[in-house]
Simulated assay, not measured.
Amino acid sequence: MTDLTGKTALVTGSVQGIGLAIAEALAGAGARIAVHGIAGDMEIREACAHLEKAGAPEAEFFHGDLRDADETARLMKAVAAWGGPDILVNNAGIQHTAPLAEMPRATWDAILAVNLSAAFATMQAALPGMAARGYGRVINIASVHGLVASVEKAPYVAAKFGLVGLSRVAALEYAAAGTKAQGGVTVNCICPGWTETSLIEPQVAARAKAHGGDRDAGIADLLAEKQPSRRTSDPSEIGALALWLCAPIAHNVTGTAIPVDGGWTAQ
């Protein structure tokens, strides 16, 4: 099992969904968790308490609006002062669908800022310290849309393709840092397909209604066009993969974009 005792992990967008599941997996291995996201005080307290119950020695919330470069810089300075990060998970993301001709420029700017530019800033701040310590993990939560495109998602697809490319550059630049014994420094992307989070629940409910309330049939119908398995992933599955990537044994797994998509990108 992966032992992250003494390690500090920053997981952006970790108050719910995939981010919380990844934070929970890392907490279970003994990592301190720097929690981040957009949430009210009650949700923040619940997330931190949940992660400490899961095994984190400490879970503390750090604020930072990733649309703002100055706030992102302050976030990274605060986490560095707290003792990390040894592990950086760029999970926070925003989405908006519209045809290319109708996509507002402000929406394009916001999606690129959160989904790509913020990851550049957090990696730029964190990677030198990881290299100096001989151990570091950057896990960028991209998407199948970092590997294939879909209509009406121009800024999201552009950002996720960019995130995969950025990660590969960083992986090459830091490939020789550290040793096998230390664990080295790796940079990878996880590219989820349909994953069961609150974001897709309205679509699942609508499809289930069309199938007489059968949720499984609704999910299969929703996924039929693109995900051959016709099964969603659970956020905990993404968490388990992220945890494995943090293990010393994964020291030579770097520069990858790993799909968890039921065969979507194999077509």
Rank of each mutant, 00 (worst) to 15 (best):
A59S: 02
A125C: 01
A171K: 04
H145N: 03
I141M: 06
G6A: 06
L66Y: 09
E237T: 01
W264K: 07
W244T: 06
I139T: 01
A98M: 08
A132Y: 13
L20H: 10
V157N: 01
C189H: 00
I249A: 15
Y174T: 10
T8Q: 07
G165M: 07
G37F: 10
F62R: 03
A208C: 06
A59T: 02
L222N: 01
L26E: 01
T256H: 12
I141Y: 05
L88A: 06
E225V: 13
D68W: 04
S236M: 13
I238S: 11
S233D: 11
D109Y: 07
E152C: 14
G184R: 04
W82L: 09
I87L: 08
G146R: 00
P228K: 05
D234I: 15
P235Q: 06
T265A: 02
Q95P: 03
F62P: 10
G218Q: 00
D261Y: 03
G30D: 07
V15N: 12
G129A: 04
V138Y: 06
S236K: 15
A171Y: 09
R230W: 10
T186S: 13
H50D: 14
P104S: 04
Y174W: 12
L75Y: 06
L166E: 01
E225N: 14
N90K: 09
I219M: 01
A220I: 03
G6L: 00
T107I: 14
W244P: 04
V185P: 10
S14E: 02
M76S: 02
Q203R: 08
H251W: 15
F62K: 10
I258Q: 07
N90E: 01
V253L: 11
G218W: 00
V89G: 02
W264D: 12
E173V: 01
I44D: 11
W244S: 12
N140I: 08
S236W: 11
L166Y: 00
K7H: 06
T256D: 13
G178I: 09
L245N: 09
I44A: 11
A73S: 12
A69N: 12
G183Q: 06
P128I: 10
S236T: 13
R74Y: 11
A121N: 10
G28V: 07
V144F: 02
E46Y: 14
I111T: 04
P99C: 11
A175Q: 07
A47C: 14
V11N: 01
L116I: 05
Q182C: 15
T122R: 07
R231K: 05
G184S: 03
F120Y: 03
A154S: 15
A177L: 13
L51G: 07
A118I: 04
